[in-house]
Design a binder for these strands. Structure first.
Length: 461
RNA sequence: GCCCCCAUCGUCCAGUGGCCCAGGACACCGGCCUUUCACGCCGGCGACACGGGUUCGAAUCCCGUUGGGGGUGCCA
C-alpha cells in the first residue's frame, strides 16, 4: 500500500537559502528517495512586492551544491494565479468565502476572529479582501507524523484572507491549491507552519474532494539564545558555509543530525546510508541548536578522509595566492590536511613559505622568544648547526638536538628538550607556534631563507 | 493576551515500563603518542525541569506547575 510519495520544498524568494531551509530540503529529499518517490520544487512567489527573483537562482544553486537534486522543473507559484483565483471564486459561490473590508482591531483585549461584514453580501471592491468563512463551531484535527494529533478549535481561527484587495492570492490559498493540484502526498516543512495547517485544511475541505497530504512539521533550528534562526540576525546562508570551505557532503551529514540520529549512533556516514536509515517517524519534535563547531568537526573528518590529491583539488578554489601556495601545498599537503577544519584554513598553514617575511604573531613571539632567555643562544646554535647540515629531515633534526643541548634545553636524562627548543625556531621561521612539522617546513623553505629568518629574529631579540 | 508545540549532559542525538545509579558524538579537562600544533588512542567532567499520580517497577504512561519556542499580517 505504500505508494511512492510526492514531496515538495516551497521556498519563498525573499532571502538566501539558509541552513534551516537546507535541513527541510534534506529531510524531504531523504524521505522521497528512500521510498522511491519524487521531490519537487515550488517557488512561492505570490507576494510580488517582496519577491527578489535573483534569489531564486541562489536558492536553486545552493540546493544543487548540497547535491540534493529535485525532480522536474521548479514550479513558480505566480504562474498558477488564474487557477488560484478560480478556486477562490468557487469558494465564494459555495458560501465558504466572502468579500470584506473588515480588519481585525489592534491592541489589547481578546482578538476579533469574525469579520463583522461576513454576511453583508459584499462584492469585490476597493479595499476589500476575500476572506474565508471559518465555521463557528467545531475544530480541525490533523495527524502530524512527528507530533501526533494536533487540534485547533475553529473559534480560535480568524476569518483569514485568501485574496488580497489588490487581487493577488495569499500564500495559504496558493499553497493548498497547488499541493492539491500537484498531488502532493507528504508535506514536510518547518514547525512555524503548524498553526497554519488547520487553515490549509479548511480550504482544502471547502474545495471538495482533494488529495489530503500527510503532514510532518520539523523542529526549527535555533541560535544560542534558543531563538529561531533568521537570515536577518544570523550568518546562516548555505552559501556562506560554502565560502568558508565546508564540504557539501559534510554539511548534509551534519544537517541530518539535527532533529534525527541514526539508530546505531554512527554519526559520520555517507548519504546513501542516511537514505537507508532515515525514518521520519523518528524525527524529534524539539528545536535544535545549529552548532558550527560540530559542523566543522565533521567537516574535518570528511577532509581527512579524502585522498590527498582530492583534498588539494578541493582547496584550490580557496587559495588567494594560488601561484605561490600551490607548489608548497603539493609538498606539505598531507601535513596540512590533518590540521585543517575548513578548506579556507589551508593556505594559512603554508603562506609563511612564500611570503618575503613571515607574519609574526606577537603573542607567539612573546611566548617563544621574548620570555625565554635560552632563545638567543638557541637561535645562534641552530644557525651554526644548520649552516653545515644536509638539508634533510633527519639531519636537520640531529643538528637541532645538538643546538638544543648547547642552548640549555636539557631534560632530566641529559637529553635534548626538542619540543621546547623548537618553539623559538618555529616562531622565527613561521611567525606562529603551530603549523606543519618543523623540519619538513625547513626543507621546503630552503637553507638560505631559513638562515636569513633565523638571523633576522636574532637581530630583533 | 489568545492558540499551538516542546522539555535527557553546555550542545546534538540514543533511550518508546525492568537490559539505565542513563549510552554515543561535539565542546571542555587530563594522559599517552609525538619535532610544535593537529590527527589517533585512553580517561574524566557532565543530564532524565519540578510536583503529583498509574504501576511490583518510570527518563519512558497520565495530570498539573514551571520554563522555552512558534504562531497570532491584505509576509511566506
Amino acid at each position: 500500500m505504500t505508494e511512492a510519495p510526492r514531496c515538495r520544498f516551497a521556498p519563498s524568494p525573499t532571502g538566501f537559502l539558509h541552513v534551516g531551509g537546507a535541513r527541510t530540503v534534506l529531510f524531504n529529499w531523504l524521505f522521497a528517495r528512500q521510498r522511491g518517490g519524487s521531490f519537487l520544487l515550488r517557488v512561492e512567489d505570490t507576494d510580488l512586492d517582496r519577491n527578489q527573483p535573483e534569489l531564486v537562482d541562489d536558492i536553486l544553486r545552493s540546493i544543487e551544491w548540497l547535491g540534493l537534486g529535485w525532480d522536474g522543473e521548479p514550479v513558480h507559484q505566480s504562474a498558477n494565479r488564474d487557477r488560484h483565483l478560480e478556486v477562490a471564486e468557487a469558494l465564494v459561490a459555495a458560501g465558504h468565502a466572502f468579500w470584506s473590508g473588515w480588519q481585525p482591531a489592534q491592541g489589547s483585549g481578546p482578538p476579533e476572529r469574525r469579520a463583522t461584514d461576513r454576511d453583508a453580501g459584499l462584492g469585490p471592491g476597493e479595499g476589500r479582501a476575500l476572506r474565508f468563512r471559518v465555521p463557528d463551531g467545531g475544530a480541525t484535527t490533523f495527524t502530524d507524523l512527528i507530533r501526533g494529533d494536533v487540534t485547533v478549535g475553529h473559534a480560535d481561527i480568524e476569518d483569514f484572507v485568501l485574496v488580497r484587495a489588490n487581487g493577488t492570492p495569499m500564500f495559504l490559498l496558493a499553497n493548498a491549491v497547488d499541493d492539491s493540484d500537484m498531488a502532493i502526498t507528504h508535506v514536510l516543512r518547518g514547525e512555524e507552519h503548524v498553526n497554519g495547517t488547520p487553515k490549509y485544511l479548511l480550504i482544502q475541505a471547502a474545495m471538495g474532494p482533494t488529495v489530503r497530504p500527510t503532514f510532518a512539521h520539523l523542529p526549527i533550528l535555533v541560535d544560542e539564545q534558543r531563538k529561531k534562526l533568521s537570515k536577518r540576525k544570523h550568518a546562516v546562508a548555505v552559501s556562506d558555509f560554502e565560502a568558508k570551505g565546508i564540504l557539501p557532503e559534510a554539511m548534509v551529514n551534519y544537517l541530518a543530525l539535527l532533529g534525527w540520529g541514526p539508530p546505531d549512533g554512527i554519526e559520520v556516514r555517507p548519504l546513501a546510508e542516511l537514505v537507508e536509515l532515515f525514518r521520519l517517524e523518528d524525527v524529534n519534535s524539539s528545536p535544535a541548536f545549529f552548532d558550527v563547531k560540530k559542523l566543522e568537526a565533521i567537516n574535518g573528518d570528511y577532509l581527512r578522509a579524502l585522498p590527498v590529491e582530492d583534498f588539494l583539488g578541493r582547496v584550490e578554489p580557496f587559495l588567494e595566492h594560488g601561484e605561490r601556495s600551490r607548489p608548497v601545498l603539493r609538498e606539505l599537503g598531507a601535513e596540512v590536511q590533518t590540521r585543517v577544519r575548513t578548506l579556507a584554513d589551508a593556505e594559512g598553514y603554508v603562506d609563511f613559505l612564500w611570503r618575503d617575511e613571515p607574519e609574526i604573531d606577537e603573542a607567539a613571539w612573546a611566548k617563544a622568544l621574548g620570555r625565554d632567555e635560552r632563545a638567543a643562544p638557541m637561535l645562534d646554535a641552530t644557525i651554526a648547526e644548520w649552516e653545515a647540515a644536509p638539508l634533510d629531515v633527519d639531519a636537520l633534526k640531529a643538528a637541532m638536538e645538538r643546538a638544543a643541548l648547547a642552548a640549555g634545553y636539557v631534560n632530566a636524562e641529559g637529553g635534548p628538550q626538542l619540543g621546547k627548543a623548537q618553539a623559538p625556531v618555529r616562531v622565527a621561521l613561521t611567525g606562529r607556534t603551530v603549523g606543519p612539522p618543523l623540519f619538513e617546513s625547513v626543507v621546503a623553505l630552503g637553507r638560505d631563507r631559513t638562515l636569513a629568518r633565523l638571523r633576522e629574529a636574532r637581530r630583533r631579540l
